[in-house]
Design a protein around this nucleic acid. Structure first.
Lengths: 205, 205
DNA sequence: TTACTTCTCGACAGTACGTCGAAAAACTCG
DNA sequence: CGAGTTTTTCGACGTACTGTCGAGAAGTAA
């Protein structure tokens, strides 16, 4: 359900069409959820007939999955320093969250739509699961390390806590109209979840 | 879009049908999302023809909305002691979360499905918004009180923090296969988000 | 019975999906 | 160039689901 059925290889005219479909989808998804987009629209955007669409993708879902896979890399990047570090490293966490928030600002509707459609749609569910566990695994390991080193207090099992943090992050970014404005607060809150008390500089509030 | 179009009042045979539709919907929603349920199934479950369905509801969405409204009360109940109290009251928070988790265990698929379908569907979006702000408003007020009383440290604006807590709670409960197992961890984490450091009894972890 | 409301359903029209097979366009190689 | 092959296109078709309309059956009350 996720691989183009007809085309094999060769960088040619059909490639431009495939791109056009993807591009059209990206544009439309910025305005409305997948369910409200018809194959007709996608085909029209790429200037081909509806049936021709099926030469490139076998459903509009496949288009979304392709789009998402093209973005999977970006979503995890910049998280390295934070995830591989130790202790309540405010700066590193902010460095991880800032680009992520930018991505959500740019593609929020698409990502939120994909997330919402994920249950009840295996390929999307799998994409989400992979993304999630890529984050949760590393974060859980970090939490365990910090606890062993006496840097973080005991609490929920590392995997559970990491899962909660991932949930929070995703839900917050997905729900916000201005994700970038949320970064500082997310930093504070994620650190509190892991370290409870830590040296923070409160803006007088 | 949310009121039965044909019927007015009178406790009669049609009432049983309406109940039957609702009941069928509840059952089916426990197994699959709204999008995968056809009006035919709903009608069949109530032993009427598809067109008769439209005498009672004007779309399957209306059925879901009706179901959800019938549940809105339960979702907020038991939160009073926690929301109206002060300070890191572990017990009160647990008393609020436990029945909520039970509700999510019983109707999780339905609630999660409704939440997922909310963006791009005004009546559901409004239901979700009302539910959310009912919680966020009171929680934000509580946080502000606690800060003023010196019980909680400064941090994100109360409304923002309350929003993050609501996001976390909802996402975590929606994503978990066993919500009730999550209660203790949610208690810990929500308290940390508000109070950072507070007296907690860590199970050796 | 009559008159009225409540309820039921078949028939129709609309929209979107996905498949098939014929054929046009593009490319390959002799 | 031109025959053979692969890539690409599309109209026609069948299916599934949605929502509406109007005729009429069933229930209720005088």
């Amino acid at each position: 359900m996720s691989t183009p059925p007809g085309r094999r290889r060769g960088p040619s005219k059909g490639d431009r069409r495939e791109r056009a479909i993807l591009e059209t989808a990206r544009t439309l998804l910025a305005r409305k959820p997948l369910a409200d987009i018809t194959i007709d629209e996608l085909a029209a955007g790429a200037e081909i007939s509806r049936s021709s669409f099926y030469f490139y993708f076998d459903s509009k879902l496949s288009v979304l999955v392709a789009l998402l896979h093209g973005m999977a890399g970006e979503l995890g990047r910049d998280a390295g320093p934070w995830l591989d570090g130790a202790g309540p490293d405010t700066a590193a966490l902010r460095e991880a969250l800032t680009p992520l928030a930018r991505l959500w600002r740019e593609h929020g509707r698409m990502l939120a739509g994909a997330l919402a459609a994920a249950p009840g749609c295996p390929p999307l569910a799998q994409w989400r699961a992979e993304l999630r566990s890529a984050h949760v695994d590393r974060l859980a390991a970090r939490i365990a390390r910090d606890r062993a080193a006496g840097l973080a207090p005991a609490g929920p099992a590392p995997r559970v806590l990491a899962g909660l943090i991932d949930d929070l992050r995703t839900a917050a970014l997905a729900g916000s109209a201005d994700p970038e404005a949320l970064v500082d607060d997310l930093v504070t809150v994620e650190l509190r979840m892991i370290y409870a008390d830590f040296a923070e500089d409160h803006p007088a509030g």
